[in-house]
Write a protein that binds this DNA or RNA. Structure first.
Lengths: 240, 240
DNA sequence: CGGCGCTGTAACATTCCGTCACAATTGCGA
DNA sequence: TCGCAATTGTGACGGAATGTTACAGCGCCG
């Protein structure tokens, strides 16, 4: 990963989120915040998160429950944070799939060290084939996008090979159809990086994609522009 | 064995697996991990493992049971690891076919020394072809890669011989289909070494492989390039 | 209808990749 | 152990993919 890691802070206390957030931003991390499980799920659906800092004590769903929930369909690294420094929690957290455990109060240095450690560990740890990455095919308009072979097949049999960037961008769109995605989001989802000032790379890539898959690139029906908002995959998508 | 040994760590604690994994990766070993017997069998079926580091205490099937089970149809070296430092276990483990025994806690140096010792000790016998159970044929696209004869067989009967390097690289890819592998990873998996600056050897080898097995090497469908990422075997692979 | 900000895209710059030719290394038989 | 042949690594160059810049055109708002 060449871009800076994107970290999601889940905590119901705004002051804590902001405090942690500032410290991590200073370190060069990109940050998103959620105050509860609902907001967390929304962000996980909308962004490519590299690590979750998950508070154990949350109103409504507990951190442990959320942790298990996340693990059910993702292996994004999780660091559990809690004020209850009891060993029991540590064990439970790790059993539920957390990658590390951080008792409050913690210092900035320790936090950063843990984050870097977990990131390094999960990055380098050789793949466990437990994640049966059963990828899919997405059907939309006249096309079928095969997530495995990175191919685009038109209903008349024409096969089109996509470049890496085109594929990544199209996947981001196809996985979130009929939803407006900002350039910022798309950059995060497809490239895993933040936008620089006057960043137009998404626009260019969209333009190139349209040339390939729109019947009339000057009148795009599949990838539509939302003025002032971003782009949206307008076509209906069925995953198979 | 030109490539570095491929070691399988079987332990239910993720922390321990990662810790050991990191230490061994640093030593140049190739690592796979399993958290239980099921995952272990899956890996043993899909990869050529040179040594198993098997924890005695596992939820569900115990390490002893797994050890006996492995021995029933393979002679892959096994090092038993356990926290219970009792002599009894050692005896039982060795009786069941373990090649060595390592009590927790153990240091990195000792672990590596034991592994190297066992590998050296068992190298001769492993060469003896009783390992029919380990070697497999991989079927993908129009090809069958025979792990025994290092040959590629096309479905029209054409047979193609591969050089050592081509074979090792293709095995690395075929054992991990639909996953992007960085040049760094591929060098480690296929050659057992780290990349030097401006290392392009993987690129040339991929190029050579494509020439042999792609229908149209200028539009590769089997080994795909992931721009800025590495390579990926796009075809579906079935082991038989 | 006019200005401003946003978008489309061509053109250029940059980075990464494919592959050729050749050098270095390895494997193997004499 | 030596020498040859096959294999593998290196450097170079062209080409492809992507990012950046610039400018033309469009949409929104008054």
């Amino acid at each position: 990963m060449t871009a800076s890691p994107h970290i999601l802070i889940v905590d119901d206390h705004r002051e804590i989120r902001d405090l942690v957030s500032r410290a991590l931003v200073r370190e060069g991390f990109r940050i998103s915040q959620a105050s509860d499980g609902k907001a967390m799920r929304k962000i996980l659906a909308d962004a490519r998160i590299d690590l979750i800092l998950l508070d154990l004590m949350l109103p409504g769903e507990s951190g442990l429950s959320l942790c298990r929930d996340i693990r059910a369909h993702s292996n994004v690294p999780i660091i559990m944070v809690t004020a209850k420094g009891e060993e029991v929690d540590r064990v439970i957290g790790l059993e539920l799939g957390a990658d590390d455990y951080l008792p409050k109060p913690f210092g900035t240095r320790e936090l950063i060290a843990r984050i870097n450690s977990v990131l390094r560990r999960t990055q380098r740890s050789v793949q466990e084939p437990e994640a049966e990455n059963q990828r899919r095919n997405y059907r939309f308009d006249r096309w079928v996008l095969s997530a495995d072979s990175r191919e685009l097949l038109r209903d008349d049999g024409v096969s089109l090979s996509l470049s890496t960037g085109e594929f990544d961008l199209l996947m981001a769109l196809v996985e979130r159809p009929q939803r407006v995605l900002s350039r910022e989001q798309l950059l995060d989802l497809a490239r895993g990086r933040a936008a620089s000032a006057f960043d137009r790379s998404i626009d260019t890539q969209v333009s190139r994609l349209r040339k390939k898959l729109e019947a009339d690139p000057s009148d795009p029906r599949i990838i539509q522009t939302v003025w002032g908002g971003g782009y949206m995959l307008a076509a209906k998508v069925t995953a198979e």
